[in-house]
Design a protein around this nucleic acid. Structure first.
Lengths: 222, 222
DNA sequence: ACCTGAACACCGTTCAAGT
DNA sequence: ACCTGAACACCGTTCAAGT
């Protein structure tokens, strides 16, 4: 039997066939995701991952180059929760709304990944590239000029990431505390929003997403 | 001479009058900001701050409760670079554009602060509260219904924080790498954007900010 | 090829002891 | 009141030694 040449750049070994040992990329990523989901990202250490797999921490480094790479593996798994299915079948504004909703929900649950992935090259993940292809396809079918599509996608993603961070903020983040009484306009606006009964982060996301989608779709040059 | 009661909650001591020692809040914050600006946030350790001030690391804890609090001090300093002066004098859309531009520029230079501050109660900082009062005033004068103002501000901030993160991403973040050729729509859109000559992050910010401001101001209910 | 155990080079933070 | 020095309880990562 012949086998392909081994790629020695980057990761120490490939993720293809399972190895002789008990560890592989899938098992490590799954263990890490379970720890982060169950107990939070502050408990996600290489030691914790190793312990849950019954090996020593150093054993992990036969399969992963760094904790950073492990976070990328987790990102790939959770990105499966982002729904881009509507771009093929529905009007652009509806597809964008569903995509953005699911995207924010995923990363509100994985906020510590945001600073990592917002800065991460996308080339390594076919699944994520497939998402961008689907989203782009929605814009193309809606008749968008090609040079405006990537900026629109990136703008939406920036808003989504920021909103996912905001969703993890304490509910009373804007409480003026001991400065209450000295900020008439701001306090009035806070109280008016509070009186609507909607969660601050949710109404901000809804208002911003609605505004950005309408703003993009009503652009003078589109 | 009489003196006010000492507030023993929270920080171990107040930041008011300078102490006998060489350290105080201002000097520590300034030293930390200089380290972060000159050599990056990855070099900003309590040890590095102590060393630059000529004291031992443990000495800092007589003046600051935690590194987290130190990062808040830095945030307060850099927030002075956010320009909210136009809300008092200019139309809302122009004031928002200037505010957002300066806000993003500040945090593109201090991206590691974003996950901290996006989640931070605002009550401790009069300067930041004053900013929100000024921004809110702009919306009020433009005739906005009060309950829609806070969501609009938060939505814009979410977009700004996400865009500031994006501004620190590598230029080729969307390069499909070895998957080049299999993503016709996405690759076409990338190439079309690239051909405009504008930086990806900049055109995304411009397009998104423009869309969101127009979308907010053209809302059916405003 | 893969794993263990020890070690390295750090972190932020605490605390008794000094002045 | 403030500072030092030692210590604590961690991190991620490397590497020689084993199988």
């Amino acid at each position: 039997v012949s086998h392909p040449a081994v790629d020695t750049s980057g990761a120490r070994r490939r993720a293809g066939r399972p190895q002789a040992g008990v560890l592989d990329r899938g098992r490590i990523a799954q263990a890490a995701l379970e720890i982060a989901t169950a107990n939070g990202y502050s408990t996600l250490t290489m030691s914790a991952v190793a312990k849950s797999l019954g090996v020593s921490p150093s054993a992990l480094y036969n399969h992963v180059d760094s904790k950073q790479e492990l976070l990328q593996w987790i990102q790939e798994i959770v990105m499966a929760g982002v729904d881009h299915s509507l771009f093929a079948t529905h009007p652009l504004d509806r597809a964008l709304a569903r995509w953005a909703d699911s995207y924010r929900a995923v990363f509100a649950d994985h906020a510590p990944l945001i600073p990592v992935i917002a800065v991460l090259p996308v080339s390594g993940s076919p699944r994520i590239l497939a998402m961008y292809e689907a989203v782009t396809g929605g814009f193309v079918r809606a008749g968008w000029p090609p040079e405006r599509i990537v900026p629109a996608i990136v703008a939406l993603e920036s808003f989504i990431f920021g909103s996912a961070l905001d969703a993890t903020a304490p509910l009373d983040i804007f409480d003026p505390g001991r400065h209450t009484g000295s900020l008439p306009a701001f306090e009035g606006a806070l109280e008016a929003q509070r009186a609507t009964g909607a969660a601050r982060a949710d109404s901000a996301f809804r208002a911003g997403l609605d505004a950005m989608i309408r703003g993009l779709l009503s652009s003078t040059t589109a």
